[in-house]
Simulated scan of single mutants.
Amino acid sequence: MVILGKLKFLSRSFAALSSAPLRICIVGSAPAGFYTAEKLLKAHEGVEVDILDRLPTPFGLVRSGVAPDHPETKVVINQFSRVAQNERCSFYGNISLGSSISLVELREMYNAVVLSYGAESDRSIGIHGEDLAGIHAAREIVWWYNGHQDCRNLTPDLKSSDTAVILGQGNVALDVARVLLRPTTELARTDIACHALAALEGSSIRRVFLVGRRGPVQAAWTAKELREILGIKDLDIHIQQADLVTTPADEIEMKNNRIRKRVYELLSKAANPGTSPLCNQRELHFVFFHRPEKFLELDDKSGHLAGVRLEKTILKGDDGQMKQVAVGTGVYEDISCGQVLWNSDSTEEH
Protein backbone atom coordinates (compact mmCIF):
# COMPACT_ATOMS: atom_id res chain seq x y z
CA MET A 1 0.00 0.00 0.00
CA VAL A 2 2.75 2.45 0.96
CA ILE A 3 4.91 1.50 -2.05
CA LEU A 4 1.97 1.83 -4.46
CA GLY A 5 1.05 5.21 -3.01
CA LYS A 6 4.63 6.39 -3.32
CA LEU A 7 4.89 5.28 -6.96
CA LYS A 8 1.69 7.10 -7.92
CA PHE A 9 2.85 10.16 -6.02
CA LEU A 10 6.32 10.15 -7.61
CA SER A 11 5.01 9.61 -11.14
CA ARG A 12 2.59 12.52 -10.82
CA SER A 13 5.23 14.76 -9.27
CA PHE A 14 7.91 14.13 -11.91
CA ALA A 15 5.39 14.49 -14.75
CA ALA A 16 4.22 17.82 -13.37
CA LEU A 17 7.77 19.17 -13.25
CA SER A 18 7.87 19.46 -17.03
CA SER A 19 4.98 21.94 -17.08
CA ALA A 20 6.84 24.08 -14.53
CA PRO A 21 4.02 25.56 -12.41
CA LEU A 22 4.74 26.78 -8.91
CA ARG A 23 4.60 23.53 -6.95
CA ILE A 24 4.51 23.34 -3.17
CA CYS A 25 4.68 20.24 -0.97
CA ILE A 26 3.24 20.33 2.54
CA VAL A 27 4.30 17.50 4.84
CA GLY A 28 1.58 17.00 7.43
CA SER A 29 -2.20 17.19 6.99
CA ALA A 30 -3.17 18.59 10.38
CA PRO A 31 -4.84 22.03 10.63
CA ALA A 32 -1.57 23.93 10.11
CA GLY A 33 -0.99 22.05 6.85
CA PHE A 34 -4.47 22.68 5.50
CA TYR A 35 -4.51 26.34 6.54
CA THR A 36 -1.19 26.78 4.74
CA ALA A 37 -2.57 25.09 1.63
CA GLU A 38 -5.70 27.23 1.72
CA LYS A 39 -3.68 30.47 1.91
CA LEU A 40 -1.37 29.39 -0.92
CA LEU A 41 -4.23 28.41 -3.21
CA LYS A 42 -5.97 31.73 -2.64
CA ALA A 43 -2.83 33.84 -2.99
CA HIS A 44 -1.45 32.25 -6.18
CA GLU A 45 -3.73 31.20 -9.02
CA GLY A 46 -1.06 29.05 -10.63
CA VAL A 47 0.16 27.22 -7.55
CA GLU A 48 -0.29 23.47 -7.13
CA VAL A 49 -0.16 21.97 -3.64
CA ASP A 50 0.47 18.38 -2.60
CA ILE A 51 -0.26 17.47 1.03
CA LEU A 52 1.51 14.37 2.38
CA ASP A 53 0.85 12.43 5.57
CA ARG A 54 2.17 9.19 7.03
CA LEU A 55 -1.39 8.20 7.97
CA PRO A 56 -3.92 7.04 5.37
CA THR A 57 -6.38 9.74 6.50
CA PRO A 58 -6.01 13.54 6.76
CA PHE A 59 -6.86 16.19 9.37
CA GLY A 60 -4.43 15.21 12.15
CA LEU A 61 -5.49 16.29 15.62
CA VAL A 62 -8.95 17.36 14.45
CA ARG A 63 -9.59 13.68 13.81
CA SER A 64 -7.53 12.09 16.57
CA GLY A 65 -7.07 14.79 19.22
CA VAL A 66 -10.52 16.33 19.69
CA ALA A 67 -12.74 14.67 22.28
CA PRO A 68 -15.44 12.48 20.69
CA ASP A 69 -18.18 14.39 22.52
CA HIS A 70 -17.07 17.70 20.96
CA PRO A 71 -18.43 17.38 17.41
CA GLU A 72 -18.73 21.14 17.04
CA THR A 73 -14.94 21.44 17.18
CA LYS A 74 -14.61 19.00 14.29
CA VAL A 75 -16.77 21.09 11.98
CA VAL A 76 -13.58 22.68 10.65
CA ILE A 77 -13.06 19.42 8.73
CA ASN A 78 -15.67 20.72 6.27
CA GLN A 79 -13.42 23.68 5.50
CA PHE A 80 -10.38 21.43 5.07
CA SER A 81 -12.37 19.09 2.82
CA ARG A 82 -13.16 21.98 0.47
CA VAL A 83 -9.43 22.72 0.27
CA ALA A 84 -8.66 19.08 -0.55
CA GLN A 85 -11.32 19.11 -3.31
CA ASN A 86 -9.64 22.03 -5.06
CA GLU A 87 -8.39 20.81 -8.45
CA ARG A 88 -4.96 22.28 -7.66
CA CYS A 89 -4.64 20.41 -4.38
CA SER A 90 -3.92 16.71 -3.81
CA PHE A 91 -3.65 14.61 -0.67
CA TYR A 92 -1.37 11.58 -0.44
CA GLY A 93 -1.59 9.30 2.58
CA ASN A 94 0.73 6.50 3.69
CA ILE A 95 3.76 8.61 2.77
CA SER A 96 6.33 8.76 5.58
CA LEU A 97 9.08 11.37 5.36
CA GLY A 98 12.40 9.60 5.83
CA SER A 99 11.25 6.08 4.96
CA SER A 100 8.84 6.46 2.01
CA ILE A 101 10.66 9.47 0.62
CA SER A 102 13.50 11.72 1.74
CA LEU A 103 13.52 15.48 2.23
CA VAL A 104 16.24 15.71 -0.43
CA GLU A 105 13.93 14.03 -2.96
CA LEU A 106 11.07 16.36 -2.09
CA ARG A 107 13.25 19.44 -2.51
CA GLU A 108 14.25 18.21 -5.96
CA MET A 109 10.62 17.82 -7.02
CA TYR A 110 9.10 21.00 -5.61
CA ASN A 111 9.74 24.73 -5.61
CA ALA A 112 9.22 24.72 -1.85
CA VAL A 113 8.61 22.17 0.91
CA VAL A 114 6.68 23.07 4.06
CA LEU A 115 7.22 20.84 7.09
CA SER A 116 3.97 21.02 9.00
CA TYR A 117 3.99 18.16 11.47
CA GLY A 118 4.37 18.09 15.22
CA ALA A 119 5.92 15.77 17.78
CA GLU A 120 4.59 12.22 17.60
CA SER A 121 6.12 10.95 20.82
CA ASP A 122 6.23 12.08 24.44
CA ARG A 123 9.30 13.02 26.40
CA SER A 124 10.29 11.07 29.46
CA ILE A 125 8.66 12.17 32.70
CA GLY A 126 11.93 11.83 34.58
CA ILE A 127 10.28 10.38 37.68
CA HIS A 128 11.19 7.14 39.45
CA GLY A 129 8.87 4.30 38.45
CA GLU A 130 7.62 5.83 35.19
CA ASP A 131 8.14 2.50 33.40
CA LEU A 132 5.55 0.71 35.56
CA ALA A 133 2.52 -0.80 33.84
CA GLY A 134 -0.47 1.48 34.25
CA ILE A 135 1.25 4.75 33.32
CA HIS A 136 0.34 6.34 29.99
CA ALA A 137 0.74 9.68 28.29
CA ALA A 138 -2.62 11.43 27.99
CA ARG A 139 -1.92 11.70 24.26
CA GLU A 140 -1.97 7.90 23.99
CA ILE A 141 -5.35 7.69 25.72
CA VAL A 142 -6.78 10.44 23.52
CA TRP A 143 -5.55 8.62 20.41
CA TRP A 144 -6.92 5.35 21.83
CA TYR A 145 -10.49 6.56 22.30
CA ASN A 146 -10.37 8.41 18.97
CA GLY A 147 -9.30 5.30 17.03
CA HIS A 148 -5.83 6.50 15.97
CA GLN A 149 -4.03 3.61 14.29
CA ASP A 150 -0.91 4.01 16.45
CA CYS A 151 -2.89 3.34 19.66
CA ARG A 152 -5.59 0.99 18.45
CA ASN A 153 -3.94 -1.87 20.34
CA LEU A 154 -3.48 0.06 23.58
CA THR A 155 -5.08 -1.75 26.51
CA PRO A 156 -5.38 0.64 29.47
CA ASP A 157 -6.22 -1.19 32.68
CA LEU A 158 -9.61 0.14 33.68
CA LYS A 159 -10.64 -2.76 35.92
CA SER A 160 -8.00 -3.44 38.58
CA SER A 161 -8.63 -0.20 40.48
CA ASP A 162 -11.45 2.29 40.94
CA THR A 163 -9.05 5.26 40.87
CA ALA A 164 -7.16 7.08 38.13
CA VAL A 165 -4.78 10.02 38.54
CA ILE A 166 -4.29 12.60 35.79
CA LEU A 167 -1.18 14.76 36.04
CA GLY A 168 -1.83 18.15 34.50
CA GLN A 169 -4.62 20.69 34.59
CA GLY A 170 -5.20 21.74 31.00
CA ASN A 171 -8.01 21.06 28.55
CA VAL A 172 -6.56 17.70 27.47
CA ALA A 173 -6.59 16.55 31.09
CA LEU A 174 -10.22 17.63 31.39
CA ASP A 175 -11.11 15.80 28.18
CA VAL A 176 -9.60 12.55 29.46
CA ALA A 177 -11.23 12.93 32.87
CA ARG A 178 -14.60 13.61 31.26
CA VAL A 179 -14.38 10.53 29.04
CA LEU A 180 -13.47 8.38 32.05
CA LEU A 181 -16.32 9.72 34.18
CA ARG A 182 -19.10 10.42 31.72
CA PRO A 183 -21.86 7.76 31.47
CA THR A 184 -21.18 5.40 28.58
CA THR A 185 -24.82 5.71 27.49
CA GLU A 186 -23.94 9.30 26.58
CA LEU A 187 -20.57 8.43 25.04
CA ALA A 188 -22.31 5.86 22.82
CA ARG A 189 -23.99 8.75 21.00
CA THR A 190 -20.61 10.24 20.06
CA ASP A 191 -18.02 9.09 17.52
CA ILE A 192 -15.82 7.43 20.15
CA ALA A 193 -13.99 4.34 18.86
CA CYS A 194 -15.92 1.11 19.41
CA HIS A 195 -13.06 -0.63 21.21
CA ALA A 196 -12.75 2.27 23.66
CA LEU A 197 -16.47 2.38 24.34
CA ALA A 198 -16.50 -1.35 25.07
CA ALA A 199 -13.59 -0.98 27.50
CA LEU A 200 -15.22 1.99 29.24
CA GLU A 201 -18.49 0.07 29.62
CA GLY A 202 -16.59 -2.46 31.72
CA SER A 203 -14.52 0.16 33.57
CA SER A 204 -14.24 0.06 37.37
CA ILE A 205 -12.97 3.65 37.61
CA ARG A 206 -15.17 5.74 39.86
CA ARG A 207 -12.66 8.33 41.14
CA VAL A 208 -10.42 10.61 39.11
CA PHE A 209 -7.82 12.95 40.62
CA LEU A 210 -6.73 15.97 38.54
CA VAL A 211 -3.35 17.03 39.91
CA GLY A 212 -1.69 20.38 39.28
CA ARG A 213 1.53 21.81 40.70
CA ARG A 214 0.04 25.30 40.97
CA GLY A 215 -3.28 26.70 42.18
CA PRO A 216 -6.80 27.14 40.78
CA VAL A 217 -5.96 30.61 39.50
CA GLN A 218 -3.13 29.20 37.36
CA ALA A 219 -5.05 26.19 35.96
CA ALA A 220 -4.70 26.11 32.15
CA TRP A 221 -8.17 24.97 31.16
CA THR A 222 -10.87 27.20 29.69
CA ALA A 223 -14.11 28.11 31.43
CA LYS A 224 -16.13 26.29 28.76
CA GLU A 225 -14.27 23.01 29.27
CA LEU A 226 -14.43 23.31 33.05
CA ARG A 227 -18.14 24.11 33.03
CA GLU A 228 -18.77 21.02 30.89
CA ILE A 229 -17.14 18.55 33.27
CA LEU A 230 -18.68 20.19 36.32
CA GLY A 231 -22.06 19.66 34.67
CA ILE A 232 -21.79 15.87 34.41
CA LYS A 233 -24.85 14.34 36.04
CA ASP A 234 -24.35 12.67 39.44
CA LEU A 235 -20.65 13.62 39.63
CA ASP A 236 -19.38 14.46 43.11
CA ILE A 237 -16.84 17.32 43.00
CA HIS A 238 -14.08 17.52 45.64
CA ILE A 239 -12.08 20.73 46.12
CA GLN A 240 -10.18 21.66 49.27
CA GLN A 241 -11.35 25.01 50.60
CA ALA A 242 -7.78 25.85 51.61
CA ASP A 243 -6.73 25.64 47.96
CA LEU A 244 -9.19 28.39 47.07
CA VAL A 245 -7.57 30.96 49.36
CA THR A 246 -6.02 33.57 47.08
CA THR A 247 -2.90 35.70 47.50
CA PRO A 248 -2.35 39.30 46.33
CA ALA A 249 -0.47 37.88 43.33
CA ASP A 250 -3.47 35.68 42.49
CA GLU A 251 -5.80 38.67 42.67
CA ILE A 252 -3.61 40.59 40.24
CA GLU A 253 -3.54 37.64 37.85
CA MET A 254 -7.33 37.42 37.90
CA LYS A 255 -7.66 41.17 37.43
CA ASN A 256 -5.45 40.99 34.33
CA ASN A 257 -7.01 37.81 32.92
CA ARG A 258 -10.77 37.42 32.66
CA ILE A 259 -10.57 33.68 31.88
CA ARG A 260 -8.56 32.96 35.03
CA LYS A 261 -11.10 34.85 37.09
CA ARG A 262 -14.00 32.95 35.56
CA VAL A 263 -12.30 29.59 36.10
CA TYR A 264 -11.68 30.47 39.74
CA GLU A 265 -15.32 31.49 40.20
CA LEU A 266 -16.55 28.20 38.72
CA LEU A 267 -14.28 26.19 41.02
CA SER A 268 -15.36 28.18 44.06
CA LYS A 269 -19.00 27.54 43.26
CA ALA A 270 -18.38 23.83 42.66
CA ALA A 271 -16.68 23.54 46.06
CA ASN A 272 -19.99 24.46 47.71
CA PRO A 273 -22.60 22.32 45.90
CA GLY A 274 -25.13 22.46 48.73
CA THR A 275 -26.15 18.84 48.25
CA SER A 276 -24.99 15.58 49.79
CA PRO A 277 -23.14 13.07 47.59
CA LEU A 278 -25.02 9.98 46.50
CA CYS A 279 -23.93 6.45 47.28
CA ASN A 280 -21.73 4.92 44.56
CA GLN A 281 -21.54 8.28 42.85
CA ARG A 282 -18.52 9.00 40.66
CA GLU A 283 -16.01 11.49 42.03
CA LEU A 284 -13.74 14.14 40.54
CA HIS A 285 -11.03 15.44 42.87
CA PHE A 286 -9.22 18.68 42.02
CA VAL A 287 -5.78 18.49 43.65
CA PHE A 288 -3.88 21.78 43.56
CA PHE A 289 -0.39 22.67 44.81
CA HIS A 290 1.03 19.16 44.31
CA ARG A 291 3.54 17.67 41.90
CA PRO A 292 4.50 14.05 41.22
CA GLU A 293 7.56 12.81 43.09
CA LYS A 294 7.53 9.04 42.61
CA PHE A 295 5.41 6.25 41.19
CA LEU A 296 4.76 3.37 43.57
CA GLU A 297 4.88 -0.32 42.64
CA LEU A 298 2.62 -3.07 43.92
CA ASP A 299 4.10 -5.05 46.81
CA ASP A 300 4.16 -8.21 44.70
CA LYS A 301 6.84 -6.58 42.49
CA SER A 302 4.80 -7.39 39.42
CA GLY A 303 5.88 -4.18 37.75
CA HIS A 304 2.39 -2.68 37.96
CA LEU A 305 1.50 0.71 39.34
CA ALA A 306 0.15 0.89 42.89
CA GLY A 307 -0.02 4.66 43.31
CA VAL A 308 1.73 8.00 43.02
CA ARG A 309 3.60 10.00 45.65
CA LEU A 310 2.92 13.74 45.48
CA GLU A 311 4.94 16.58 46.96
CA LYS A 312 3.14 19.61 48.36
CA THR A 313 4.15 22.86 46.64
CA ILE A 314 3.96 26.58 47.25
CA LEU A 315 4.09 29.40 44.73
CA LYS A 316 6.94 31.85 44.55
CA GLY A 317 7.52 34.64 42.08
CA ASP A 318 6.81 38.23 41.14
CA ASP A 319 3.39 39.51 42.10
CA GLY A 320 1.16 40.03 39.09
CA GLN A 321 3.78 39.08 36.52
CA MET A 322 2.32 35.61 35.92
CA LYS A 323 5.70 34.14 36.83
CA GLN A 324 4.64 32.33 39.97
CA VAL A 325 6.37 28.96 39.95
CA ALA A 326 5.75 25.89 42.07
CA VAL A 327 8.43 25.05 44.63
CA GLY A 328 8.49 21.81 46.60
CA THR A 329 8.03 21.87 50.37
CA GLY A 330 9.30 18.40 51.30
CA VAL A 331 5.84 17.33 52.45
CA TYR A 332 4.50 14.22 50.72
CA GLU A 333 1.31 12.21 50.41
CA ASP A 334 0.39 9.10 48.44
CA ILE A 335 -2.64 8.36 46.28
CA SER A 336 -3.41 4.72 45.55
CA CYS A 337 -4.47 4.19 41.95
CA GLY A 338 -4.30 1.75 39.05
CA GLN A 339 -3.78 4.30 36.27
CA VAL A 340 -1.72 7.47 35.90
CA LEU A 341 -2.17 9.62 32.81
CA TRP A 342 0.15 12.55 32.28
CA ASN A 343 0.46 15.53 29.99
CA SER A 344 3.84 16.54 28.58
CA ASP A 345 3.81 19.75 30.65
CA SER A 346 2.63 18.15 33.92
CA THR A 347 6.13 17.79 35.37
CA GLU A 348 7.43 21.19 34.28
CA GLU A 349 9.49 22.88 36.98
CA HIS A 350 9.82 19.51 38.72
Results as ranks from 00 to 15, higher is better:
Gly170Ser: 13
Arg88Tyr: 02
Arg213Phe: 05
Asp131Glu: 15
Ala198Phe: 03
Pro292Leu: 00
Gln79Ser: 14
Ala196Val: 07
Leu61Pro: 07
Gln218His: 10
Ile101Thr: 08
Val208Tyr: 02
Ile95Ala: 10
Lys74Asn: 14
Ile77Met: 15
Arg207Ala: 04
His70Leu: 12
Val47Ile: 06
Thr329Asn: 04
Glu311Ser: 11
Ser116Glu: 06
Thr222Lys: 11
Gly170Val: 11
Glu201Asn: 14
Arg260Ile: 00
Leu4Trp: 13
Val62His: 03
Tyr332Cys: 12
Ala30Ile: 00
Thr247Gly: 03
Gly65Pro: 10
Leu180Phe: 15
Arg82His: 07
Lys269Met: 13
Ala30Met: 00
Asn257Lys: 14
Ala84Val: 05
Ile51Val: 03
Pro277Ile: 07
Pro71Asn: 13
Tyr110Asn: 08
Glu228Tyr: 07
Gly215Thr: 08
Arg82Ser: 09
Lys8Asp: 13
Tyr117Pro: 11
Ala20Ile: 06
Arg23Pro: 04
Asp162Asn: 14
Leu154Phe: 01
Ile229Asn: 01
Ile259Val: 11
Glu72Ser: 13
Asp175Ile: 00
Asp53Ile: 05
Pro216Lys: 07
Pro277Phe: 05
Thr73Asn: 14
Ala15Glu: 13
Val327Asn: 11
Ser99Lys: 12
Glu349Lys: 03
Phe209Gln: 06
Arg12Phe: 03
Cys151Glu: 13
Thr313Met: 01
Arg178Val: 03
Lys224Phe: 01
Thr57Pro: 00
Ile51Gln: 04
Arg23Trp: 01
Lys6Asp: 09
Lys159Val: 09
Gln85Glu: 13
Pro71Phe: 09
Gly317Asp: 05
Gly317Met: 05
Asn111Ala: 07
Leu115Val: 01
Ala326His: 11
Gly202Thr: 15
Thr36Leu: 04
Arg207Leu: 00
Ala43Met: 07
Phe34Asp: 11
Leu310Ile: 07
Val176Met: 02
Thr329Tyr: 05
Val76Ala: 09
Asp299Ala: 14
Asp234Trp: 04
Leu132Lys: 06
Arg291Leu: 08
Tyr264Asp: 12
Leu235Lys: 11
Arg12Gly: 09
Phe14Ile: 14
Ala119Arg: 15
Pro31Gln: 09
Leu266Met: 12
Asn256Thr: 04
Arg139Asp: 01
Leu230Gln: 09
Leu132Ile: 01
Val114Lys: 02
Leu200Met: 13
Ile125Asp: 06
Lys233Tyr: 07
Ser18Thr: 15
Pro68Cys: 09
Ala173Met: 01
Ser90Glu: 11
Val165Phe: 01
Gly202Glu: 15
Glu38Met: 08
Ile101Gly: 05
Gly65Leu: 05
Val245Glu: 07
Phe286Cys: 12
Arg88Val: 00
Ala119Tyr: 09
Gly129Pro: 10
Arg213Cys: 06
Ile26Lys: 02
Glu251Leu: 08
Ala242Lys: 14
Ile101Asp: 05
